[in-house]
Amino acid sequence: MANRNEPCLIPELFEALQKEQLAFFSTVDAETGAPFMNAVSWVYALNDETLRIAVDSRSKIIDNIVENPLVSLAVFAAQSTYTISGTARLVSSQLKDVPLKASVIEMTIAGVRDVMFYGSKIAVEPSYEKTYDLQAAQKLDAQIMEALKREKI
């Protein structure tokens, strides 16, 4: 299924992005014009054409998006690797009821592409562990993901 191109999220990707998911978010560096990539996990598919991503309000990602809204997100799901491209805008600089100063970016999807190399599949999706207080991490993750799901932010 390599190089499959779609105008919006396919059902498997939409489902994967209903929960916290490791992804790599790329913007254009506002100072240098070079690609700028960050690992993110607070990603939520609002619908098949819109993603919401929460980041620390001090993140350079925000300055980059203000300067140039073109972005992409790389995700491992459904035994493959996908890049989701589109435009982004800051929709909130502070989430209510969340103790961390987090901002929300909304991404309008322009295209989705399966970029896994020919004749291969992801055997085991990447995973990660929180390295700070697990109970506090779970609480914060739940608060942020719930906030991303709200119709109005």
Rank of each mutant, 00 (worst) to 15 (best):
L73Y: 04
I62A: 11
K101M: 04
M145V: 01
A54N: 02
I62C: 10
M37C: 13
T131S: 09
V112P: 11
Q18T: 05
V28W: 01
Q143I: 00
V43D: 08
S80P: 05
D48C: 04
A136G: 02
L51R: 12
D63R: 08
A78E: 03
M107E: 00
D141G: 08
R113W: 03
F117N: 15
N64T: 12
L73R: 08
R4F: 03
L13G: 10
V43W: 06
K19W: 11
E67N: 12
K101V: 03
K19Q: 12
V91C: 08
T27A: 01
Q21A: 05
G111N: 14
Q143M: 08
I144N: 07
N38M: 00
E12C: 12
Y128C: 15
F36M: 05
D56P: 10
T87Q: 08
F14N: 11
Q21D: 00
T108Y: 07
V28Y: 01
S80C: 12
K101F: 01
L13C: 07
L13T: 07
A77T: 03
K152L: 03
L22M: 08
K152E: 07
E31I: 04
A39W: 01
E129Q: 13
V66Q: 11
M145Y: 06
Y118I: 14
L17Y: 10
S85P: 06
N38R: 11
M116L: 11
P11F: 07
T83F: 04
L70N: 10
V75P: 07
S59R: 09
V40W: 05
Q79A: 11
Q135S: 13
R4A: 13
P11A: 08
K101D: 03
V66H: 11
Q79P: 03
G33W: 06
M116C: 04
L100Q: 12
I65M: 05
F24S: 13
S59T: 06
I153E: 13
A147G: 09
E146C: 00
S41R: 05
G111S: 14
R113N: 08
S103R: 04
P11Y: 02
D133Q: 15
S26W: 03
L134W: 02
D48F: 03
K101N: 05
I84R: 04
E20R: 12
L73P: 00
A77E: 00
S85W: 10
F24C: 11
L9G: 10
T87A: 07
S92N: 13
P35T: 12
T108W: 04
I53Q: 06
E6D: 09
S85K: 15
A45I: 05
S80H: 06
L140S: 10
S92T: 08
Q94T: 07
V55Q: 02
R58C: 07
A123P: 09
F25S: 10
A102L: 14
L73Q: 03
G111H: 10
F117K: 13
A39P: 15
V104A: 15
S127D: 12
K19M: 05
S80Q: 11
V28S: 11
Y44L: 10
T131Q: 10
P69L: 02
S59W: 09
S85T: 14
Q94P: 01
Y128M: 08
T83V: 13
A39I: 04
V71G: 13
S120I: 08
